[in-house]
Design a protein around this nucleic acid. Structure first.
Length: 630
RNA sequence: GCCCCGGUAGCUCAGCUGGAUAGAGCAGCGGACUUCUAAUCCGCAGGUCAAAGGUUCGAAUCCUUUCCGGGGUGCCA
């Protein structure tokens, strides 16, 4: 009954009998109800946590202090009453007043057989993860590349974090819909289209054009339209040679003309001009082919079907704005159309003075589609923290207009999972060696080449054909773990040396733990040991290292649920590191194959296999690739 | 000006929603490889949790103020 209540009360009920703290919660709840009948049972929080230090046992109950305060009794007196009413038969060592410590902590030490039983129940295909009572549909805004532009460091976090958030929620049993909001519309794109058409007209072949070339056109087109005006201002302000001034003015004339051509090209594109659309489509294909390949290389599950370009919203913008006008939600201000949101000083501009729509307008249409068509209960945006105000505004407008209302009339949960900037060693936003924007694929190449050198150093005999895919996986794991393991809101320093040092709290360390387990099973099979048989052997957890490994394993379901519900992949990273660390200690202290005791050997083999499966599952859920050898 | 986010060991970072003596990894020092991959393990050292108040049995965590750093701020995306 109490367990049932517990499950109903959590969004993702990952706690089950697999989790000893859930069992303890049930027993302590009963004890508290009996011990302090005057206390409102619905307000009981048993506050069972894992103990930090072994001398305080495995778990502790911190409920007595809080309850004592509310009912005006001494904390230790309440703790004693709880203990007197407590039955932990079959779970933990009997608890007496001697186990009450400090202001009223109740220390709990699990019975070895209870620990083994919990491990048994973890050792299933689901690994203790139970599906949510009410599965939700979660839309994840991820990646967000722009046409005619390479992916750069800025896309790393959106892609890696967004994909991890998606995987976390999928693993928790929710329905996830990824949406990559591709910047495929607007004047900048029209500029590139115009440029390609001009090239075609002069007879140049654009059939085999690459994304690199497109990226160059994008930059030069942008520079052409913007830069010269700045140069002119500088010349006028500081005085320049008349010749320079004349040259500058000439270039401005050219740039303005180019801008005019781009604007009319945009009109042509928007009205469906055949040639413009064909060129646009080619740019789209070239960009997406390469970007999706980079996503695949990053082991991020982002494909063509997840792409939802801004262009797909273009017919929805005018009606949406009209709706806001008609319902008096939007108002004119200085010839622009704005919506005011409570609590935010800056109004959200949804239509420019010249009649054009903006980023915010498209995002409103996107929210509408994601809630109404995609039926998202939650829409989460894996986007840079610098856009926090934008999202506060857009979410506010959507709510004001009711665009966030689900079919049942309740509002969807709109979440900006903001992340910080990737910095260079100088503490400034990361740049390439040459000082420009760092191309993501170049970054990955360098990581792979470093990983390759390390693998070659550790395994001189390994053939190149085997080494290459391992180096690739190790490099990607290193980069992704470095990105995912920090709290996402914070900026972090991108440092190859630290990431690929292969020591300590890094992706390769986690992979190494898996490699050691694989190695044990390879050796076991070579020695003719029946490993299949061992996988059903009873767990014997006598060594402290075995026990702490078991306790680490049992934290998996709860940790996964917390990471998923809070959109915090770093929690799962910390878990994976602790698990790998516990395993490494176990590996050092508890010989598996060189073990005369057959029962102990079987138990340890099973413990190894369970560790392998949990660690692999956690890494899969983070989108981190794994290897068998390294 | 206003708003948002940070500040924890020499460096890079955790800290499970208020719990016991604040934890890791690098770097430093000292140990452990004829033994399941030493990309590892074990130990030592390293802290006024930016500062000051407040809330209470109890604060890195919650509240207030101040300082420092970063970001954003009506017609780019």
């Amino acid at each position: 009954m109490h367990l049932h209540l517990l499950i109903m009360s959590t969004n993702t009920p990952s706690a089950s009998i697999t989790d000893p703290s859930a069992l303890l919660d049930e027993r302590f709840r009963s004890a508290i109800e009996a011990a302090v009948p005057e206390f409102d049972p619905s307000r009981i929080n048993t506050s069972i946590t894992a103990s930090r230090q072994p001398k305080f046992g495995d778990f502790q109950c911190n409920a007595a202090m809080g309850i004592a305060k509310r009912i005006g009794k001494q904390p230790r007196e309440v703790a004693a009453a709880i203990v007197a009413n407590l039955d932990v038969e079959g779970i933990a060592n009997p608890i007496t007043e001697d186990d009450i410590a400090g202001p009223g902590f109740i220390n709990i030490t699990l019975l070895p057989e209870a620990l083994a039983a919990s491990l048994e129940s973890l050792d299933t295909p689901e690994l203790g993860i139970t599906p949510p009572v009410e599965p939700k549909t979660i839309v994840v805004d991820v990646c967000g590349v722009n046409l005619a532009k390479q992916m750069h460091v800025g896309h790393l976090r959106s892609t890696v974090l967004g994909d991890a958030l998606a995987r976390l929620n999928e693993r928790s049993g929710h329905t996830v819909k990824r949406q990559s909001h591709v910047g495929d519309w607007g004047l900048p794109i029209a500029m590139v289209v115009e440029k390609l058409i001009e090239l075609e007209d002069t007879g140049e072949s654009v059939a085999t054009i690459t994304l690199d070339t497109l990226n160059g056109y994008y930059k030069s087109a942008q520079a052409k339209c913007k830069g010269e005006h700045i140069a002119l201002k500088t010349i006028i302000k500081y005085g320049g040679h008349p010749k320079a001034l004349a040259e500058c003015e000439l270039r401005i004339e050219e740039a303005d003309a180019a801008m005019e051509r781009a604007k009319s090209r945009l009109v042509a594109l928007q009205s469906g001009d055949e040639r413009s659309v064909a060129v646009w489509q080619r740019i789209y294909d070239i960009t997406m082919t390469e970007c999706l390949a980079t996503c695949a290389r990053l082991n991020a599950n982002i494909t063509d079907e997840h792409s939802a370009g801004e262009s797909t919203y273009r017919d929805e913008l005018a009606p949406l704005v009209d709706d806001l006008i008609n319902r008096k939600i939007a108002e004119e201000d200085d010839s622009a159309l704005i919506v005011r949101v409570d609590g935010i000083k800056a109004p959200c501009i949804i239509r420019k003075r010249d009649g054009g729509f903006l980023y915010a307008t498209t995002d409103l249409a996107a929210i509408k589609r994601r809630v109404e068509k995609l039926q998202g209960d939650t829409v989460v945006y894996s986007v840079d923290s610098r856009q926090a105000l934008h999202f506060r505004q857009v979410f506010g407008v959507a709510h004001k207009a009711g665009y966030d209302l689900k079919a049942d009339g309740t509002p969807a949960n709109l979440v900006h999972a903001a992340f910080g900037t990737i910095m260079g060693d100088d503490g400034k936003p990361f740049k390439s060696r040459s000082g420009g924007t760092a191309k993501l694929s170049d970054l990955l190449d360098e990581a792979v080449s470093r990983a390759n050198a390390s693998v070659a150093e550790k395994n001189p005999d390994m053939p190149e054909s085997e080494r290459a895919p391992i180096a690739e996986a190790v490099a990607i794991a290193a980069i992704k773990y470095a990105d995912l393991s920090n709290e996402s809101i914070k900026d972090y320093v991108f440092n190859f040396d630290r990431m690929l040092a292969f020591e300590g709290d890094t992706g390769p360390y986690l992979l190494y733990a898996l490699v050691r387990i694989s190695s044990i099973f390879r050796k076991a099979n070579e020695a003719g040991i029946d490993t299949k048989e061992a996988l059903t052997a009873p767990f014997l957890l006598n060594d402290p290292a075995e026990k702490s490994l078991a306790l680490a394993l049992l934290r998996y379901p709860r940790t996964l649920g917390g990471a998923s519900d809070n959109f915090e992949p770093n929690r799962l990273c910390a878990f994976a590191y602790e698990l790998a660390s516990s395993f490494s200690s176990f590996f050092d202290k508890c010989p598996v194959l060189r073990n005369d005791d057959a029962e102990s050997q079987a138990s340890r083999l099973r413990l190894c296999e369970l560790t392998r499966r949990v660690l692999k599952d956690a890494l899969d859920t983070l989108g981190i690739p794994t290897v068998e050898r390294m």
